[in-house]
Design a protein around this nucleic acid. Structure first.
Lengths: 138, 138, 138, 138
DNA sequence: GTGGTCTAGACCACT
DNA sequence: GTGGTCTAGACCACG
């Protein structure tokens, strides 16, 4: 994962976790790594991971059982909803950017459709793993 | 303009200027503010603005006449081309983000078309002014 | 190296580096001195050296790896091409100077051939070292 | 004339005068402009022009008659000799530059001959006038 | 006035 | 350790 200094690290990590959840790499009800392990794999401070889990809990994406660990929500509907929200954010940002270039939403959509065809979907390749723990010291 | 600490300020300012050029708020051949004036309006150091103008020159978007000032290129073709490039970048970033959520380009395009219709183009509003100098301490 | 105040120092240093590259004193792919070291050896500010390296990168003579350093391009063809460009510049300047004295290019060539014979080539001596850091106060 | 800040202005002006003499634009025995007029046409300080004339006198290119003005030497041989010297300087600088690029004098001569043919002599055009008084304040 | 160059010194991200 | 960015302030050449 690449870090973007514009956002607090904990939010960037949280987004990365959420992506793994909405794409099914992390299964509903599945156990998340321990705070300590996740801290190591992302090369961040354990306190930061704690904050990540707190954030995810607040968004009702995860839940914690004392002594057991942190788990992905079992609410498939909530996961689907979250995927929607994240997609909406991307759409909104894209349209905003295009607007700043002088394109109307319709023009943006036309353009995207054209380009999307040029670069057809390769679903299998879409969510490669292995970009997990590229760190940053803390 | 909002600053995003992930990108060097000089590139963010450069992008802002380019947006004003591609949307026609700055006319081909028109004079850009002086280094010092732009430094004041963006609340950055004059050296930073120099770097912005140097960057824009390198991209052949502007040209400089010593003692006269810095000007928007008169090459309308270049401006059009730049607008294309900037739009391509947004499209690429959007598709990449959607891909990370598990959407194929086709799915992304479908979704965008749907949302674009929901929020129809308001051409008149597209190029709002007035978001000039929101500062940054120094 | 002797400084000639007519040209910005960063270009003079850049030219010096390029000379070392085209003559093979600096090898393709080889590491250049760090910004700080070069700043010391030329007795200039590190920012000036940064600008030198930026310039060389723009000319595709060098490339940079963050945290690793700056390196000579591995593209031998580019180096050869650059040597041609630099030679062309010298030829052009020479012919221009002779023209201002009233010599045609042919006359200039004849004269040069005569003088070149008088001072025959000493290939071994051509790439003398040891003219490194002759300073400049700061 | 373009000024080159690497050299004292008086030497740059002197060189310009000498070029006009060796190319015949200023005739042997001819009168040079007054200090005051030359100062105006070059936009420099009259003291600077005085120094120019002093320099030219010392090189025996000009002579001064009190109350009459400054004149080009009538010694055609001296003029021819000076042209030689100036050409020699150019040749030497060119060969030095090529040597720094790794070319032997022979190689430099070969290259120049080739390029000189590519850009054949246009003697009539060689010494255009009209680039006299492009100034510089003082 | 304009932009261009240079210095000094700071802080950051990356390895 | 590496280079990249930014600031502050100085001086210069050009018009």
């Amino acid at each position: 994962m690449e870090y973007n200094s514009s956002l607090p690290i904990y939010l960037q990590v949280a987004t990365d976790i959420k992506r793994q959840i909405v794409t099914g790499r992390l299964e509903p009800g599945g156990k998340l790594p321990s705070v300590r392990d996740l801290a190591i794999s992302y090369t961040v401070n354990p306190n930061t991971v704690s904050r990540v889990y707190r954030e995810l809990e607040q968004e009702e994406v995860c839940f914690t059982r004392r002594g057991m660990g942190t788990f992905v929500t079992e609410d498939a509907e909530r996961i689907k909803q979250m995927k929607e929200e994240m997609a909406e954010d991307l759409v909104r940002d894209f349209l905003e950017g295009m607007k700043q270039l002088g394109f109307t939403p319709e023009e943006a959509a036309v353009r995207l459709s054209r380009d999307a065809k040029a670069e057809p979907g390769r679903q299998g390749e879409a969510n490669g793993q292995g970009e997990a723990a590229r760190g940053r010291e803390h």
